[in-house]
Design a protein around this nucleic acid. Structure first.
Lengths: 175, 175
DNA sequence: TTGAGTTAGTATACATGGATACTATATACG
DNA sequence: CGTATATAGTATCCATGTATACTAACTCAA
């Protein structure tokens, strides 16, 4: 979309600066290119996936991360403390608290005081999700379908297994 | 790490709320679980990768995204406009501008006025990167090595190919 | 029981991200 | 030439993310 019109008239490199590329400098660049490409794919796919999903749910004002938290709260019934929720969603407690603030403002969840631990607040999904579950699930499925065009189910499972290995290598939890 | 001590004393579900789970509700949850797992792996790996990399470069105050931009500026010599840079790094111009502000504060880049287009500013890497390139490259390589433990080179190439397909499916550029 | 250490949740500061609006400038067209 | 449109970069608002500090409350051991 955003083509530039500067290419043809870009000035020559600044005098005295052009020949500074040493062979040593070339080395580390070349060695990193392939792996750097891999590592940025994670960011890029995440960004594109979120963009697609949030475009489909714009009317509900639901972000991808809010959906992750809400989905978890709704999946695990019985009231979760925020610390438990942070463990499960692998988020820090501070950003989780803010996301819960927004979900509570939107009427998706409620927080109740823990009956015995006065520090803790238990998080419950409200009935609102029942009304919108289909739309949210449809949006998620549509984005998945978009991403996984032409990818066989067996490939998806293999991909998950490999990515989980990378995650474990980096010290991530196993789910 | 952050074990919770609430599990054993979690109160029973609120009276009258427990039996609301319908079979229809179970449907959309089950259908989404596998694919949701895949999509969150991208976020999780990105987060863990960044954390590992930034721990190794803390002394330089270099974040992962700043490194991506600086790497690109340094790789493509001759002065890039911010719009060109935004295209290449697949970022929006606004956040890119802020990242360039920080890189400029740190002395990693300079911005010069375009000789003929007074709207545009051309970005150049300074010589500072020559001094720290080895440390940055070492940090990046170490994080890659950590992530790719026990993964063969051929698997890495295959993984890249598959992820690039997902990225294209979501409308992403091809690099 | 009391005091040290731990935990739950929130507040705060800062670095990314997206979306949008705005200024200055450039281009294209009548 | 003058005006409409497009573009470059910045500013602004908000949502996430990390790190850190803080308050209140809990636990455990002397």
């Amino acid at each position: 979309m955003s083509e530039t019109n500067l290419t043809s008239e870009r000035p020559k490199p600044v005098a005295g600066k052009a020949p500074r590329r040493s062979s040593k400098a070339l080395d580390w660049r070349a060695a990193l290119e392939t792996e750097a490409k891999l590592s940025w794919l994670f960011v890029d796919i995440h960004r594109l996936f979120s963009k697609d999903f949030e475009a489909r749910t714009k009317a509900l004002g639901m972000t991808r991360v809010q959906w992750r938290v809400l989905f978890t709260v709704d999946r695990i019934q019985g009231g979760l403390s925020q610390t438990e929720l942070a463990d499960i969603t692998e988020m820090e407690k501070a950003p989780l608290g803010k996301i819960l603030d927004r979900l509570e403002e939107g009427g998706w969840i409620i927080r109740k005081n823990h009956p015995t631990d006065r520090r803790a607040r238990l998080v419950y999904a409200t009935s609102k999700i029942e009304k919108y579950a289909d739309r949210l699930a449809q949006a998620a499925k549509a984005t998945f379908a978009q991403m996984l065009q032409g990818v066989r189910q067996s490939e998806v499972r293999e991909l998950i297994a490999r990515l989980e290995k990378l995650k474990r290598n980096l010290g991530g939890a196993d789910d």
